[in-house]
Design a protein around this nucleic acid. Structure first.
Lengths: 339, 339
DNA sequence: CTGAAAGCGCTTACAG
DNA sequence: CTGAAAGCGCTTACAG
């Protein structure tokens, strides 16, 4: 019995019988291969239509060795960033006749279980988005032999799509410095990630460079670790507001954190940008609504690029490479000179 | 050659040889089936580990007739609602050993191409989220024989997960009426959808009922059609603000539209809820940040429910049924009595 | 341009 | 508890 079917479905033999040709010819005719007489092809098509025949993808895959599927692994599904990368990738996969199989590996256990399972074998290639692999896991994956594209993280041997996170941190901070701010805080992910998620460290490095360049002494209490979430932005901002000398400007490593920070500032009775300026990273759709100055990443573009890279490698096995996507500062109303 | 592999992978025969048993025993031992001697099972496991054997999912599928895959069809991927439904479904699918294959059918053409293709045959069942099918398409899908669960739309023969949209419209409007508003506008999707997307009409019906109940005369110009997006909320709100007698309260059929409306109100120099109250639908994560009063839907729960329903039917073929999920009004700071 | 046949790598009655 | 063998439904050299 086939997937999605209870009653018997017509198979390639039924079509062959109906069209009075061999199954080989049916296969060739229906897939538009060359070397099929036009009249034969038409006869086969008619028979297939009559019998409502659709090739069983599973059988095609087993026989051909190609699944026409790309696996995408994300830490979560319901986050703007991941959904947007996925949407970007999906577009190119569909255009090129591939399907998208989605896996969520939210924690170490799920990730390791996924990698040890046979599930990833059901795809011709894979895209990992912000998935922090251990050395051993990367090795296991590489051993599968199919192309792997990593978005957001870099691994040796994997093709990767990244942005210049140091530059992101620098340009955001520079913007605040240019406005005249001295007490500039930074909200972001935790540093020293054991799994090598370097984005927070790099953005922080850019922040440091921008401050050091103009000789602004960094105040340690203005660097606060959190997670890239609205809630965390709210809480970390509250910590900053509780300081004896709160900052006059905040660089938030993601727009979602920035949204939380904006709320915390307003909830405390202060205004943006009057009392405190805020700059984020991403250009999340809500940033326009929130009038948030931000460093734009073209996230859907990253997904599309990852899709293109993985398909190119599936189809002609290139060398792994590193692609860097552009980012740019978008100045909106959440930033202004200090009082 | 297998998916994701260039060099030859070990197959079940290699493992059988190594463990000195038949392939049938390897299959049974590795899948944890009963009637395998403990010592034999251990030997097979060891051999599999040694040879880094992982069963080829494609071959398993062809032989067993089960794909262990559920297809999910959405109109777009990068929208909060769809990503959240997907996340909810993914959780239960993964827990029960199923994989998630994602298809996007954004317009009629893509939808019809998808349905006519053999791609949906690669799954044991499917979940459609807000997919507006024609009669013919629904028939084609039903003919596939596998269970189909529709989220957000109802079709005869399909199991569906819905909410009481009339009640949503009524409770949101009632809340505004209770606050003393008379000039209450409604922003939402277009009515009279040829494809039967009834949500806008039903929410509008609830709005009417709430007004009629207390005898408030409806002003036609306060009903404006748009799409469920931030941008559309912004634009339709601008239209309302341009009226000679703008409303003092707005019921927006989605939170995202409401966000756009909030921005339009503020951009015009008015305040919320001082000048205009706004209530949305969804309880989008940003609603907390925006302090938006809204009718909450447990969207991830809808996805999880859909997942459970489709799996239950795959595993024991139930009758199609209709599940109605709860909604509830969450009062925040975007609503207040009129001036 | 077409067909016969092998093969893809598993699972599953069936028999013992 | 285990194995031999058929079968899942296609695709693909190979031969003609």
């Amino acid at each position: 019995m086939n997937a999605l079917s209870n009653d018997r479905r017509n198979n390639i033999e039924d079509v062959a019988r109906e069209a009075r040709v061999s199954t080989a010819t049916v296969s060739r005719a229906l897939r538009g291969m060359p070397n099929v007489a036009p009249s034969t092809r038409e006869r086969v098509r008619k028979a297939a239509r009559l019998l409502e025949y659709r090739a069983d993808p599973t059988a095609s895959r087993l026989a051909s060795g190609r699944t026409n599927t790309v696996a995408m692994v994300v830490p979560i599904l319901d986050g703007w960033y991941f959904a947007t990368v996925m949407a970007g990738a999906e577009g190119v996969l569909t255009d090129r006749g591939y399907e998208l199989l989605v896996f969520v590996a939210g924690d170490e256990e799920a990730r390791s279980r996924l990698i040890m399972s046979s599930r990833l074998r059901g795809a011709d290639g894979m895209i990992l988005v912000d998935v922090a692999l251990t050395e051993a896991e990367a090795g296991t994956l590489l051993q599968l032999g199919g192309p792997i594209v990593s978005v957001g993280m870099e691994f040796g041997g994997f093709t990767s799509v990244v942005v210049d996170d140091v530059e992101i941190g620098r340009s955001a901070t520079q913007h605040l410095v240019d406005l005249g701010h001295i007490d500039i805080a930074i909200l972001g992910g935790a540093g020293d990630d054991p799994l090598g998620y370097l984005v927070p460290d790099r953005r922080r490095e850019g922040y440091r460079q921008a401050l050091d360049k103009v000789g602004i002494a960094r105040r340690a209490e203005l660097t606060i670790d959190g997670t890239f979430s609205v809630r965390s932005g709210y809480e970390t901002m509250q910590e900053l507001l509780a300081l004896r000398h709160p900052p006059t400007a905040v660089f938030s490593m993601s727009d979602e954190m920035a949204f939380g920070a904006l709320k915390a500032i307003r909830d405390s009775g202060l205004s943006v940008p009057g009392d405190i300026s805020v700059v984020g990273v991403d250009d999340h759709p809500m940033s326009w609504v929130m009038d948030l100055t931000t460093v734009q990443q073209k996230v859907a573009g990253h997904g599309a690029l990852a899709g293109r890279l993985v398909l190119d490698q599936i189809e002609e096995s290139h060398e792994p490479l590193r692609q860097e996507a552009e980012t740019s500062l978008i100045i909106r109303g959440s930033t202004a000179p200090p009082r």
